[in-house]
C-alpha cells in the first residue's frame, strides 16, 4: 500500500488529480478508465476540501492510499473532517437527468459521476476518519 499526504486545501485538488493520473498509468488502466478515476477522485477531493475543511474552517489532510493487485486498483482517500457519506445523499434519477437545462437542479452531479465512473465506490467511517474507496478493475475491454 502506497501513501501520500496532501493538505486539505484547494491548491491540492489539482495535485491530487495529477497524482491519481500517475497511479492509474502505473496500474496500466486504459485511457477511459484513467479519466473516469481521475474525475471521481477530483469530485470527492473537491467535496472534502470545500465542505469538509473550508466551509467549517477546519484544517486537515487528505491521505491518498493506493493498492494494486493483479485484478484491481484500489484508491482510498482518508480525511479527518466531520463524518460525511457521499452515498447518503439522493442521486439524480432518470427523470432529473432528462430535464432541460433551464429546469435542472444544480447539485448531485459530482457524486453521480463518481459512482458511474468507477467499478466500485464505497464509504466508511473508521474512528476519526472518513474513508472514500474507489476500485477499478484492470484489463477491462473498453
Amino acid at each position: 500500500m502506497n501513501s501520500k499526504t496532501f493538505p486539505g486545501t484547494v491548491e491540492s485538488i489539482d495535485l491530487i488529480r495529477h497524482y491519481i493520473s500517475e497511479i492509474a498509468q502505473s496500474a496500466g488502466l486504459d485511457k477511459k478508465s484513467s479519466y473516469n478515476l481521475k474525475l471521481a477522485a477530483d469530485e470527492i477531493a473537491t467535496n472534502i476540501v470545500l465542505y469538509g475543511y473550508e466551509e467549517p474552517g477546519l484544517e486537515g489532510n487528505i491521505e491518498v492510499l493506493d493498492e494494486q493487485t493483479e485484478e484491481a486498483l484500489t484508491v482510498i482517500f482518508e480525511d479527518t473532517s466531520a463524518p460525511f457519506d457521499p452515498l447518503a445523499r439522493e442521486l439524480p434519477d432518470e427523470e432529473d437527468l432528462t430535464k432541460p437545462l433551464e429546469e435542472r437542479q444544480i447539485g448531485g452531479l459530482g457524486i453521480f459521476l463518481t459512482v458511474k465512473g468507477v467499478d466500485d465506490f464505497s464509504y466508511e467511517r473508521v474512528g476519526e476518519k472518513n474513508r472514500n474507496i474507489f476500485k477499478m478493475l484492470k484489463g477491462r475491454v473498453s
Binding site: K38, L39, T46, L101, L109, G110, F112
Partner: peptide, 11 residues
C-alpha cells in the same frame, strides 16, 4: 478535463 463544476456552469 471537465468536472461536474463545469457542468454546473453550463446549467
Amino acid at each position: 478535463f471537465m468536472a461536474s463544476a463545469g457542468l454546473r456552469v453550463l446549467i
